[in-house]
Measured scan of single mutants.
Amino acid sequence: VSEWTEYKTADGKTYYYNNRTWESTWEKPQ
């Protein structure tokens, strides 16, 4: 699942961004 990158927002929430599909999600990808 290497295309997903984990980021943190300014208020400390974690989200995930897909470099291949430009998708972002709050849930941890499978």
Score class of each variant (00 low, 15 high):
W22A: 15
Y15L: 11
R20I: 15
S2F: 12
G12E: 01
Y7K: 14
T5R: 11
E27W: 09
E27A: 09
N19E: 12
T25E: 01
W26A: 08
K28P: 15
Y16R: 00
T25F: 12
N19W: 08
E27Q: 06
T25L: 10
Y16M: 02
N18A: 00
P29R: 00
D11G: 06
W4T: 03
W26R: 00
K8T: 14
D11K: 05
E3G: 09
T21V: 05
W22V: 02
N19Y: 05
N18K: 01
A10E: 13
S2V: 08
E23Q: 03
D11L: 07
A10Q: 13
N19A: 08
E23W: 04
E6L: 02
Y15P: 01
E3Y: 06
P29V: 05
E27I: 11
T9G: 06
K8S: 10
D11W: 05
T9E: 04
V1M: 15
D11F: 07
N19R: 04
T21S: 04
W22R: 12
G12Y: 04
E3W: 02
E23P: 02
K13G: 09
W26V: 02
A10K: 10
E23T: 00
E23V: 06
W26D: 10
E6D: 02
R20S: 11
Y15K: 02
N18L: 03
S2Q: 13
G12D: 08
E27G: 06
Y17D: 01
T9R: 01
W4G: 02
E3M: 07
N18D: 06
Q30C: 14
W4F: 06
T9M: 05
D11V: 02
T21K: 03
Y17A: 07
E6N: 00
P29T: 05
E3R: 00
N19S: 07
T25K: 12
N18W: 02
Y17E: 12
N19D: 09
T9A: 06
P29Y: 06
Y17M: 12
K28L: 11
Y15S: 05
Y17K: 03
Q30M: 08
A10R: 10
T21L: 08
G12S: 00
W22P: 04
E6S: 08
S24Q: 11
Y16W: 15
V1S: 12
Y16A: 02
T14D: 01
Y15V: 01
K28R: 10
T25S: 14
N18E: 06
Y16I: 03
W4V: 03
W26G: 08
E27T: 05
W4R: 01
W4A: 03
T14A: 02
T5A: 12
K13D: 10
S24G: 13
Y17L: 11
N19H: 12
N18I: 01
P29W: 07
Y7M: 15
T9V: 04
Y7L: 09
E3C: 08
Y16V: 00
W22T: 14
